[in-house]
Design a protein around this nucleic acid. Sequence first.
DNA 1: ACCTGAACACCGTTCAAGT
DNA 2: ACCTGAACACCGTTCAAGT
Lengths: 217, 217
Amino acid sequence: MTERRDAILDAAIKLADEQGLEAVSMRSVAERVGVTPMALYPHVGSKTALLDAMMGRLLGELLPTLNAHVSWQDQLRDLAHEGRSLSKRHPWFARLQFDRPAVEPGAVRVVDAVYQALLKAGVPEADVPRLERLLSTFIVGYGASEASGRFGPVDPRGRRGQLPEGDLPAHHQLASWLDREVDWDAEFEADLQDLQRLIVAAAHEAAGQPGSAPAGS
Amino acid sequence: MTERRDAILDAAIKLADEQGLEAVSMRSVAERVGVTPMALYPHVGSKTALLDAMMGRLLGELLPTLNAHVSWQDQLRDLAHEGRSLSKRHPWFARLQFDRPAVEPGAVRVVDAVYQALLKAGVPEADVPRLERLLSTFIVGYGASEASGRFGPVDPRGRRGQLPEGDLPAHHQLASWLDREVDWDAEFEADLQDLQRLIVAAAHEAAGQPGSAPAGS
DNA sequence: ACCTGAACACCGTTCAAGT
DNA sequence: ACCTGAACACCGTTCAAGT
């Protein structure tokens, strides 16, 4: 039915994967599909709508992996790993999430899955939306940082070469650690561990002082 | 001396503040300065160099506020608040940090200040760079999420209107919380509290099991 | 040394026209 | 119903030319 639209999205995503988001233009996508740029408009509406649809497609990939019958720890870890996997396969994805709100219905379904896990963990209802935003901000931000080079040293010889060492005492003290190359998978894992403890703490505090019904009810 | 360059940066930043980053073009900046687009090139090199310089200017604003003679808690809180204040005054700033690595020397000075605070808190040297990345990813991500609308409801009537409620059980359960409008300053504060506890936990673990010298020394 | 004007190879999008 | 070609108002950047 909307076979043509799918072909356009496929071409746009493949183009972004191979040459970066800035290589995605109506003209380049059209050429890939084998059609005139203007022929895209009836199918995708506009360039921003095309970018929205690209995000929706990837968020849709995230959904089938959801499994409600596992522990909240496993559910959150699975979602975090799927999100990071998406960011690694499609380096433009995280940046796009910081460019515009995700308007596709897939986005809200993923948020609901995180809500479910946090509720199962015993987080008080009042804190669930905030902690979901904290977690998603970190996971999307981690992907965007990796993709943009924000994490890596600017200079191949290491950042410390840029300035006289006297100006950067902590860099100097940490020199032996900063010279190591980082295992980004292991770092992501360690971060998730720390954030999971943060969730446990939020749940324990709630158990200590119950009675957290919404003031409006 | 380079008075002209500063005038160009001023114009570009003001333009981005007023009309968004996508309104910043060599042509629009030149018009604001009262000069031909081509006259910018000797002063800023290229458009990407102009964007780098805009980031450098804002990161430079962050530095004078640094004060080494306060507790690590206050130092981290001050830096976090200054960073968020920057994101509020210049909504394009966070997004730009996820677009490209910060190449200006100001960036590494801010990182060093965070390193100093984490070391003072008792975080083991091996964990300091990771926790700096965790904190900066959150703070920049929070600014980018606010600016992009990623946090806010897509539909003014709330997100839940988009899908049948049966598909979103946790949204349904949390309905009374999700209908409230959020105080983003308070949320940022609560997040910082949680993250500060994470730092304390990392420091306590280190005190329990000492001997964390780099393997290479 | 600093700026200008014309030009080149790109953009997203509109609109009338074709089949 | 779907696609095309020409056109419009933009981009960043190069280059020869002006003062």
